[in-house]
């Protein structure tokens, strides 16, 4: 082993700043995808559990298709396939759409499991005290289900963030694409990817800590009420 590590070049401001820029884009893209996935998933899971028959079947099919095909194919379909049927998205738009489409499918299953873990008695009780269907769902079932969902949602969102590295293949603006740019300029791929490895690991630790905090902050108080 006579490889000489040279991190100096990558830590120079011109290169390191690009990695930081990539990191902030990864954070923004993932955060946006997480919020949108959760929103879509709540609607999707409601339709899946209590919507009309055709909607239930449609959502079930969507979830199965997304979960049984690779994310890479999904992003190719959206970035290269959709323009041929007249829907053109730029790289960043395609990346976000792909991440939300993919994230929603997994999140729907998590939300559904969360909702189904809340017993029917809760819904009946809510209706008995005069709440309407939507109100009982929003005020009684959802808050309790959210508590059950939080841990799997946390791991799912971290996976979504890590998967965002794949959108670099259509050169969307994020950390992995920044890394590819830096390594092609410095000719130090191994060193570049080691630094990026550390950054991603830091991001997932940070997300994990954030979800633990949310858990403490949102649910510790609720229990004392």
């Amino acid at each position: 082993m006579n490889y000489i590590f040279q991190f100096g070049e990558i830590l120079k401001p011109v290169n390191f700043d690009e990695l930081l820029w990539g990191m902030s884009n990864t954070l923004r893209l993932s955060a946006l995808a997480m919020v949108l996935s959760l929103a879509f998933a709540i609607v999707g899971a409601m339709l899946r559990t209590s919507g009309p028959k055709w909607a239930q079947a449609l959502i079930a099919a969507y979830v199965e298709i997304i979960r049984n095909t690779p994310f890479l194919v999904q992003i190719f379909m959206i970035f290269f396939g959709l323009p041929t049927v007249g829907l053109r998205l730029d790289a960043n738009g395609a990346a976000l759409v792909a991440m939300v489409l993919n994230g929603s499918a997994y999140t729907i299953e998590i939300v559904r499991a969360g909702i189904e873990s809340i017993t029917a008695g809760q819904m009946d009780a809510a209706k008995a005290i005069g709440l309407r269907q939507m109100q009982s769902f929003r005020l009684v079932v959802l808050p309790q289900a959210l508590k059950v969902m939080l841990a799997p949602l946390g791991s799912q969102f971290i996976l979504l963030m890590l998967n965002s590295s794949i959108v670099s293949v259509v050169s969307a603006d994020e950390l992995m694409a920044a890394a590819q740019d830096v390594q092609s300029r410095t000719f130090r791929p191994f060193e570049t990817y080691i630094i990026v490895f550390v950054i991603y690991f830091g991001l997932s630790m940070a997300f994990q800590a954030a979800f633990a905090l949310i858990d403490r902050w949102a649910f510790a108080r609720a229990e004392h009420r």
């Binding site: 082993m1 490889y3 890590l162 794949i166 191994f190 990817y193 490895f197 997932s204």
Partner: peptide
Amino acid sequence: FQGTPLLLQLFLVFFGGDLLG
């Protein structure tokens, strides 16, 4: 391994071969 992207792990192995020459 669960806290970093698989794509990056593949790249590290791919370019890590240089370590061995």
